[in-house]
Amino acid sequence: MSASVPAQPDAIDSTFGTVSAFPEPVEGPKIAARNVSVYYGEKRAIEDVSIDIPKSYVTAFIGPSGCGKSTFLRSINRMNDTIPGARVEGQILLDGEDIYRSGMDIVELRARVGMVFQKPNPFPKSIYENIAYGPRIHGMTNSRSELDGIVESSLQRAGLWDEVKDRLSDSGTALSGGQQQRLCIARAIAIDPEVILMDEPCSALDPIATARIEELIDELRGRYAIVIVTHSMQQAARVSQRTAFFHLGRIVEYGTTSDIFTNPREERTKDYITGRYG
């Protein structure tokens, strides 16, 4: 794929506002899924999903409730392993390595592929210890000063440092909802992941906190491959450059966000985007 493909102009839509358009990535995919199906016992939640997720963009998964988007997201760092009776068929490759291969180090995988959940879930520890916990258990530092540096830089990247720098010993659970979610993002990036998965990270937040998280996602884009599940099509249009529309456990359509929202190829995508169902 040629590196000289020019960026397309922003597409304007009266419902979704400005939808960013970007050129196709020139590097190989960070994550490549091939014919992935996920089962909970006998129930198949995901069927034959194949998708390439680029390194430098934000990719959004949209679709109605129960369509399988969160199930697929959790399969990317094997969170479904924690559910009794869950099994995955097919391949999910991280930099070409099958994460479901025998002998895969799950702890290492989850260090490379961090996750931010729908409800903020800070540890019942201080703000400092919320961030320091991961680097400490992964042996990333040799001194307290190095650990202090990781804590500060992680909180700065998450846009939280100026708000908490004078109360790092306070409990993380004492922060507001939006601050707690940014703390969880700081905790995820403290161990220097390559991918950040976000499962409806703003659904429990007010509009002001949601706007701050969206700004943060945009600031983090390029440092990490980011995948976000969202029920808000407006949010997907604002923060992502690639969008996959899930329906009944399958990907119906996947492409640039501008195309999905302004010129979808599939009738089912158009029906969902225009609110005919969902």
Rank of each mutant, 00 (worst) to 15 (best):
L175Q: 09
L175K: 06
S176M: 10
S176Q: 11
G178M: 07
Q179Y: 00
Q180W: 06
R182D: 07
R182S: 12
R182W: 12
R182I: 11
L183W: 01
C184N: 04
C184P: 02
C184H: 06
R187D: 11
R187K: 13
A188F: 00
I189C: 05
I189T: 02
A190Y: 06
A190D: 06
A190F: 01
A190S: 10
D192L: 11
V195L: 07
V195G: 01
I196Q: 15
I196M: 13
L197D: 07
L197G: 04
D199C: 08
D199Q: 04
D199P: 02
E200L: 13
C202R: 04
C202S: 13
S203M: 13
S203N: 09
S203P: 14
L205T: 11
L205E: 11
D206F: 08
D206E: 12
P207E: 12
I208S: 15
A209W: 11
T210W: 10
T210L: 05
A211N: 10
R212L: 09
I213T: 04
I213W: 05
I213S: 03
E215Y: 01
L216M: 13
I217G: 06
I217Q: 09
D218T: 13
D218F: 02
E219P: 02
R221M: 14
Y224C: 01
A225P: 07
I226D: 09
V227W: 04
V227T: 12
V229G: 07
V229D: 06
T230Y: 08
H231Q: 12
M233A: 07
Q234S: 15
Q234T: 11
Q235P: 07
A237I: 09
A237R: 00
A237P: 00
R238T: 09
V239F: 10
V239M: 15
S240L: 12
S240H: 08
S240F: 09
T243R: 07
